[in-house]
Design a protein around this nucleic acid. Sequence first.
RNA 1: GGUCCGGUGGCGGAACUGGUAUACGCGCAGCACUUAAAAUGCUGUGUUCGUGAGAGCAUGAGGGUUCGAUUCCCUCCCGGACCACCA
Length: 991
Amino acid sequence: MEKYNHLEIDKKWQKAWEEEGVNKTGEDQAKPKYYVLDMFPYPSGAGLHVGHPKGYIATDILARYKMMNGFNVLHPMGWDAFGLPAENYALKNKVHPKVQTEENIATYKKQLEKIGMSYDWSREINTTDPEYYKWTQWTFIKMWEKGLAFESFEPIIWCPKCQTGLAMEDLEDGKCERCESEIERKPMRQWVIKITDYADRLLADLDKLPGWEDSIKEMQRNWIGRSEGAEINFVIASEAKQSRGESNDIKVFTTRPDTLFGCTYVVIAPEKLVDLKLEIKNKAEVDEYIKKTKAKSDLERTDLNKDKTGVKLEGVMAINPANGEEVPVFIADYVLAGYGTGAVMAVPAHDERDFEFAKKYDLPIKNVIEPEFGEKRENEEFRNRIVAVVYNPKNNKVLTLNWGDKFGGYLNVGGGIEEGESPEQAARREILEETGYKNLKLVNQSEKVRHHFIAYNKGVNRGTEIIGLFFELIDELADAQSLSPEEEGKFELEWLLASEVKNKIIDPCHNYLVDKFINDVAFTGNGFNVNSDFLNGLSTAEAKVKIVEWLEKEGKGKKKVNYKLNDWVFSRQRYWGEPIPFVHCEKCGVVPVAEKDLPVRLPDVEHYEPSGTGESPLANITDWVNTTCPKCGGKAKRETNTMPQWAGSSWYYLRYIDSKNSESLVDKEKEKYWSPVDFYVGGAEHATRHLIYARFWHKFLFDIGVVNYEEPFTKLQHVGLIMAEDGRKMSKRWGNVINPDDIIAQYGADAMRVYEMFMGPFGQSCAWNTNGLVGARKFLDKINDYVDSWKVEYKEGEVHESKDTVIDKKNSLIEKTIKKVGEDIVEFKFNTAISQMMICWNYIRAEEKKNLPNGAEYSETLERIITKKQLGKLIQILAPFAPHLAEEIWRNKLGNKQSIFVSESPSGDHNKTVMSVWPEYDPELIKDDIVNLVVQINGKLRATIEVAADISEEDAKKLAQENDNIKKWLEGKEIIKIIFIPGKLLNIVVK
RNA sequence: GGUCCGGUGGCGGAACUGGUAUACGCGCAGCACUUAAAAUGCUGUGUUCGUGAGAGCAUGAGGGUUCGAUUCCCUCCCGGACCACCA
């Protein structure tokens, strides 16, 4: 078998496509459009490894498929080139980041071109190009005008090594994601964007994105972290007597306002105490604690295993607005300053963290919720019951009754309270009857608990009010059980280790009681209010509504929605980023640079070292810093902070639409035609940050009328990583990096493309295997070999003539392949598309081999089993995957004049030039006329018989019963049922 | 701890809406070609029993629903991703 010369044809067609403008994006707005986008890369010095292009190959396949379907396809590429690595490299090697970046881009571009990408390079963008970042700056000024961007002096996260401020989102495990340094908090002047104003829309509009994977939407929901609750004011007691000092109220946020009557203290985050002017008697102790908190790293503070600590503010009491009770106030670092109001009302009975803290500091725990388990059913019979948890302290085991899987599984001793009995008497009686144990000590007793369940042994729906009782075994003396007939033999006694009870007992109520008695936990679920004055008897949902209404009426609180999402810290104290386009005027304060003076260009500097004072290296360039105020003309200094790397990538997809526009960010007409992006592909690591920022940025541009729709990306698909052959990530560090240049030189671009798409499901990560790559290359060689063996001269248009209308296996297989490949491309199921093509080619080659006399060679006189037209179609559907080989065959071997990717005649002369339109399949031909009917006996395969596809049940039955093997299985059996699925299966059920 | 996604041969993986489990590729074995090797081609390849036809068992484990379950339901185990004191 002759191998095709990839070195020659790869280069030849890449050049031809460039020269012929095959990759140029069409602008004829009468045609339908398709915008397919890759997340643009940060061009690092290391260049691409074979994992990087996986997503790009996939979008290229989709783009070429859409081209062949007559779409104007926008499939661009660009560079996200601002950022720390280039700057750090510049620092070390004294090279201007710009020079370094340009070099890297050239490398990347060369590498991508070798893979045969259909990018329209005339639309290439670069975030570091002043003509590009002009519009990043312009948008930022617009945000400032709308009050969304502002300066803030709040403490921000500071990386001591990178010498720059970071956003919450730039942390990994509480450390700087770039250099893994422990971060600090440093109060500093910062620019902040109020992304939280858009939190609700960012959340709600996820519903407008059915084309996004659920997992990514879920991550965004999680990140935005919306929770509904109430903000409640706790007045400081001493001040309440004088006048109600509104400003000095402790405002808390809670999602459980219904538990307000159970609040026994209030906790403030240590950092938040300064905001309140309180007279604290133990100020020294409090200051000491605050100091310690600051010294702790974030990692230490968020360590879940650590004991909760805090300090009581002596002399300060807060008033619970619901009942007027005075409760103590603490500072404790388990309360986060950055979430909600930075203060909480502690309800130890119904919150685990408060419970833990209350136990440690011996604070009162007031129960206000009667737990409810199970759902209320129709026709409930109501009873008062007990559940007895019997515990043997000698071996740490709990007594259970195992009722079997059908009747509730493992349960504790339970039963009704008879007339005149106390709960304890009832419990002791039930324990004796059901288990025989008689020497028990009552240790603990629960509050009332509601429980709905099905009493299996009586067959009724029960609604109950339960008292849980906790007994310890004094000794193991026991009488015989004395069970009623209906309980006799229904269960077995089992002693379970306390640690395994949770896994065995399914019933949530019994589980809760065991957990409560043995592990001493708080009840955090829902139920009914008790000890809560006017809330008593209401369900959790009802109580939430009622208390909020009451608080609002009394002016003591309000309904409040809170988000985990933080505002976006938008300034970095570094050089290599977009200058923030503002000046600080001695007279006018903060003033934006006039639109006509944009872009504010990054000046050249000698040194890129951060000043260390928290100012960017730009601060040292006095020529640049000193300027005049755009408003009053007076003396002013330029803002020296730069934007974060996320800025440029938040809107780049819009610029491709109109990359050279100097009048506006994007032309409105063009935007309307091309937006939104139809298909967006990139790494899952951007699920929250980039994709939240971009959605926010887009919504803002929508609000100011720049774009016409609220969401930028219709469909989002994440790409699975390609790992190295050793299963680790490809990295210089492990020495396991495979360079695509080497692969392409040895096997060709098409083999690499096919292999990467064939490896497995697109979204799944998978280890590279060079043997697998060889398989892909063999597949392509076989196709090339097959075409060559025809040895026929083709004339233009000839492959498009002959007709194929016979329904047979071969035609049906070809049509099915055309159908499946087209469908799979759109769904990004490339592995099965390639598999289907392999099946098809294997079949054709094998069938033709059968017709050859032994040892004979193909010749032009030999009758082939497929038509020329079919050969053309099979090459067309291969083309998006293996564009170079397909183009070589299409033009050089099948005699076509125009590219396989051009689906229209450029001259408009449709008669002369053959166009390459994605083939349609014939639904009639797809049908099989003969099928293998599966014959089962009792669901087990016993025979397959070849029958006409439209065979009737009667005929199928008859044929099946004639089959020897089936006869054997039917012998002496009675047929009780027959299931027939036409064209598929016949299942005979026998007895 | 929470949320989400997975678990199928020696390996990557396929299987529509519940209907022939292991397609396709890799690897491995045997054969052909060759002085030999590589390349290529052909044949075989879940496992157990059987000369064979065929039969039993297999989709992380256990149970359930069904004529029939990789697919649906329940419990558990393992792996991955994200979030993590979010009140």
